[in-house]
Design a protein around this nucleic acid. Structure first.
Lengths: 143, 143
DNA sequence: GTATCTGCAAAACATTTGCAATTCT
DNA sequence: AGAATTGCAAATGTTTTGCAGATAC
């Protein structure tokens, strides 16, 4: 599903019109190897050790570029918290309100025609849910 | 669907555990008479003339209270933009990427069981789409 | 050598907090 | 009077912008 090698990542980015700089490749690699839908902060903190001079501005620039070039999508689940996902296919997200974990789920809204939207041109589909994940349900029962 | 009178609004807020102060009643009235899913700024600007001393803090406080007491929901459609809706039922939102208008649509995600989420407890359902509304499609054709 | 990319510092916004003044009962 | 609410000013946090230096082709 995702490129498996650094060269694969470079080729993928090039195909999408993105020059594969070190920072961009590392950020994309982080996104595809950490499917937790990280925030800018999480990405920055994770890579700052390895890329000593990395700045948050670059992380912002890069993710804005990724979204514009459609190699990543923005995930909105909470106010004041923008998360990113390298899986650009139509799928849903479930966030646990106890542990804040985000799970993907298979669901393509585009497959469900909506009467109220006839006549409009739909280009993006988003579905998300919140609740308590099974891990947190278990931990609660133990108390 | 929504209370039709000021007294109706007061009763509704009281039922939900909210003391109906002037500011709260006016903000709730604005929400149910302007179904455009306004931002804090839009609500503040719309009411500032009438409520001379209204502060943005009060608009923030009030909407946080409304969400907590479940008389309004947060609508996330864009980064850094929180919108509010007094319709707390499960339904979807469509935003036009040309004119930014937000339309409601009838769609209850809760009616669509998701295999990947078996074992988790889902308490909130959100669906939204983006695209170009029919008004903007028409204006484009005219050019 | 010219374009682009990076990263610092500052600016721009959105939201929250602390607290004093006001309102309501 | 006592409790809750309002609203100002300051603080916090996130994202963008301007620009100078570094990098790539």
């Amino acid at each position: 599903m995702f490129p498996q090698t650094i060269d694969g990542i470079k080729d993928h980015l090039k195909t999408k019109g993105i020059k594969p700089s070190l920072q961009r490749v590392k950020i994309y690699e982080y996104l595809i190897t950490h499917r937790s839908h990280p925030t800018i902060d999480e990405i920055y903190n994770a890579l700052a050790d390895e890329l000593m001079t990395l700045s948050k501005t670059t992380v912002y620039n890069t993710l804005n570029l990724f979204v514009e070039k459609k190699v990543a999508i923005v995930i909105l689940l909470e106010e004041n918290e923008t998360r990113y996902d390298a899986d650009v296919s139509n799928h849903g997200h479930f966030q646990c309100i106890e542990c804040n974990k985000v799970l993907d789920f298979n669901y393509d809204l585009a497959q469900h025609p909506i009467k109220d939207l006839e006549g409009h041109m739909v280009t993006e589909y988003h579905a998300y849910m919140k609740g308590v994940c099974n891990d947190c349900i278990k931990s609660k029962k133990e108390c």
